[in-house]
Design a protein around this nucleic acid. Structure first.
Length: 262
DNA sequence: ATGGTAGTGTTACTA
């Protein structure tokens, strides 16, 4: 049975309840993974989501910061969470569908402004978080799994608006790209979005700070859909819904979609 | 080199 999955950094699920419901109504992904819910789990506004057919949720939350949730039309069981780098943040949750597919939903630390762990503790935490992911997937050897989320790294030259200008900007530095590649290798993960759309500029995030984000188009592809190699070829129909970035009171991220025939 | 905007929850912190 094919199913469609979306990942979206929502930057407050309570403030943006309306546009989450709009995405559910217009696109109806079977599974919707959210990051930066900025809410305790019990305060996620489930009533409207249930009315739209999203009767299942696995989530981790905290007040004000971080928070990840998997909202699903399909039954999903809680498959635990990890606290890489021991930050005590709600940045990961896993769920398992009845077809046996495990879904990992991640919100990787942004890493602050200065790409130097000596001067900026947050950058070190980001690298340590990625190393934790690498080591865990290395021992876990995931199969029949999908990894999505805001990984806060745009790995390819065509994942950013200007590769050279961004080489020293957190999210596109060589050391981050190398750490992300090691996570990918350790879990046998395939970048489904780029397997599907191998060529051309592709962004999922545009800063709030631009006067006109659409015209400036200084985007980055920070949000990812990966799958383990055993099911990666079942992934297709990838898309990033750029127009959602232009909705009323938007998130600074656009949702990324893929469909899996599994 | 700097500042631009947004969310949370009270005034600084994070992105």
């Amino acid at each position: 049975m094919p199913f469609t999955l979306a990942t979206w950094n929502i930057n407050s699920v309570r403030l943006r309840e309306g546009i989450v419901a709009q995405l559910m109504s217009e696109e109806a992904p079977d599974v919707l993974c959210l990051q930066e819910c900025k809410s305790p789990v019990e305060k996620i506004p489930m009533e409207q989501f249930r009315a739209l057919g999203y009767n299942h949720m696995v989530a981790r939350g905290q007040k004000g910061y971080n928070g990840v949730a998997i909202l699903s039309k399909l039954p999903i069981e809680d498959a635990g969470d990890q606290d890489f780098a021991n930050l005590g943040h709600a940045r990961h949750v896993a769920g398992r569908l009845e077809n046996g597919v495990t879904i990992h939903n991640f919100y990787v630390p942004a890493g602050g402004d200065e790409p130097d762990r000596e001067k900026n503790e947050k950058f070190g935490q980001k690298l340590d978080y990625l190393t934790g992911m690498r080591d865990w997937f290395h021992s876990e050897k995931p199969e029949k799994s999908i990894l999505v989320g805001d990984l806060n790294i745009a790995p390819r030259e065509d994942d950013v608006w200007d590769h050279k200008k961004l080489l020293k900007i957190v999210s596109h530095t060589p050391v981050e790209v190398e750490h992300l590649a090691q996570v990918q290798d350790a879990g046998n993960w395939v970048d489904v979005t780029r397997a599907d759309i191998p060529k051309g500029l592709l962004y999922s995030w545009w800063s709030y700070r631009a006067r006109d984000w659409d015209a400036a188009d200084k985007g980055r592809r920070l949000d990812h859909v990966w799958a383990t190699s055993d099911i990666a070829s079942a992934g297709h129909s990838s898309k990033i819904l750029r127009h959602v970035r232009g909705w009323e009171k938007p998130s600074d991220h656009a949702p990324v979609f893929a469909t899996f025939d599994v």
